[in-house]
Simulated assay, not measured.
Amino acid sequence: MAQRGAKPKPAHLHIVQGTRNVTRHGSEESLRERVEGAAAAFGGLKRPSYLRGEARKAWDRYVAPADWLDASREPAAIMFCELWQEFRDAPRSFTAGKHGQMRSLMNELGLTDERNRGGGESKKTGDEFFD
């Protein structure tokens, strides 16, 4: 079902961006405890042993480096990898509906959102538009 307005931010994003509001999210300590508790409850994401071929390559290339994913996203990650294999095996018979499903799974996993990607600090200094 469609939802009006912007999607709510995850709690860890409020911590990273510094947009935590005491009246909405509580103290920073309680917010950190909730984030760590949720991560500990679900555990890490593990690759299923039955993934083969292009599905396994997709897992290794796209899902494994995504350190922000936990086990709660495992079904979506598996569906994405299996759709990716189907796309790679027969791209001409991959329908527009399946393209939409694959894009929404990538969005749900955070693979299309650069804000989720950690890593090294930017080498650029200054303003990207005026320097």
Rank of each mutant, 00 (worst) to 15 (best):
Thr95Gln: 09
Glu82Pro: 01
Ala40Trp: 06
Pro48Thr: 12
Asp67Ala: 14
Lys9Trp: 13
Gly100Glu: 15
Ser49Leu: 09
Ala77Cys: 10
Arg47Leu: 10
Phe130Asp: 07
Leu45Trp: 02
Glu33Asn: 08
Arg4Leu: 09
Arg103Ala: 08
Thr19Asn: 14
Asp89Glu: 12
Asn21Asp: 15
Tyr50Phe: 15
Ala76Thr: 02
Arg73Pro: 00
Val22Met: 12
Arg34Gln: 13
Ile78Met: 03
Ala90Arg: 05
Arg73His: 13
Arg52Trp: 02
Ile78Val: 14
Leu13His: 14
Thr95Ile: 03
Glu121Phe: 07
Phe87Cys: 03
Ala38Tyr: 04
Thr23Ser: 10
Glu54Ile: 00
Arg52Cys: 09
Lys57Val: 12
Glu29Cys: 01
Pro75Asn: 14
Leu13Asn: 05
Ala96Ile: 03
Glu74Leu: 14
Trp59Lys: 08
Leu31Phe: 00
Arg24Phe: 11
Ser49Cys: 04
Pro91Arg: 04
Ala66Ser: 08
Trp59Gln: 09
Pro48Ser: 14
Ala64Arg: 04
Leu31Met: 09
Phe42Asn: 13
Phe42Gly: 03
Glu114Trp: 00
Tyr50Asp: 15
Asp67Lys: 14
Ala55Thr: 08
Arg117Cys: 03
Gln85Asn: 07
Leu45Pro: 04
Ser122His: 02
Ala76Val: 06
Asp60Cys: 07
Glu128Asn: 01
Gly100Val: 00
Gly100Met: 12
Phe42Thr: 10
Gly44Val: 01
Leu45Cys: 09
Val22Pro: 10
Glu36Ala: 15
Val22Ile: 12
Thr19Arg: 11
Pro65Asp: 07
Ala11Glu: 15
Met79Cys: 04
Ala96Ser: 09
Asp131Glu: 08
Arg88Glu: 13
Lys98Gln: 13
Glu74Val: 05
Ala2Leu: 07
